[in-house]
């Protein structure tokens, strides 16, 4: 598993619940260290262990933890970079949805050994979509659910999302757009803030 993914889990735990919880989870998962290196690689099994430990520490099911991580990625100030990179996907929430197909390629463009699950958007009507997540990382759909929920807020869109954690590596999210300009949303300027 790419260190970026593991270090995201770590940053989520720290930023959302404090360093003590992270240290306890790292110990419970018997990591043998407290810092994931974003630019190194880890066994997939390590990721599973830390997710399980976090779930236990928070008394939350695995999928709920994953969804919270997705939301964290977009809405927490310490992950502003990720939000910005996602916002490059389009001017509106619908444009953003259409950019999801190429998200794994975009990620690879930035970090060439970061392999994200294949995403496929289907448009059933102007306000109805479904996103298929094809992955061996079970539960990645839940992460995407959190990402979509937070991105809808970011664009100021009102959406209804339904997640089906399917089997055999295919997960699905139904997306119904109720209103595209429901709230003001957060701003996005192409010019990156200095620093």
């Amino acid at each position: 598993m790419h260190g970026l993914i593991n270090s995201t889990i770590q940053r989520f735990a720290r930023d959302a619940y404090g360093p003590a919880l992270w240290e306890a989870a790292a110990e419970a998962a018997q990591l043998g260290f407290e810092e994931f290196e974003p630019m190194l690689s880890y066994d997939a099994e390590v990721t599973e262990r830390i997710l399980e430990a976090l779930g236990e520490a928070l008394a939350l099911p695995r999928e709920a933890v994953l969804e919270d991580i997705g939301t964290y990625l977009v809405s927490h100030q310490n992950s502003e970079r990720v939000r910005r990179l996602l916002r490059f996907g389009g001017m509106s929430f619908v444009e953003f949805l259409h950019s999801l197909d190429e998200l794994p390629d975009r990620a690879r463009l930035a970090v060439d050994d970061l392999v994200l699950p294949r995403l496929e958007l289907r448009e059933h009507a102007a306000d109805r979509f479904s996103l298929t997540v094809m992955t061996r990382m079970q539960g990645f759909g839940a992460v995407m659910l959190g990402v979509l929920r937070a991105m809808a807020d970011d664009y100021g869109a009102l959406v209804f999302l339904e997640y089906a954690s399917g089997t055999q590596g295919v997960e699905n999210i139904d997306i119904q757009i109720i209103e595209t300009a429901f709230a003001a949303g957060r701003g996005f300027e192409l010019g990156a803030p200095a620093g």
Partner: peptide, 12 residues
């Protein structure tokens, strides 16, 4: 996009 993504990766 690339400039931003790459500078983030470079920083890491």
């Amino acid at each position: 996009y690339l400039v931003e993504a790459k500078s983030a990766a470079m920083e890491a």
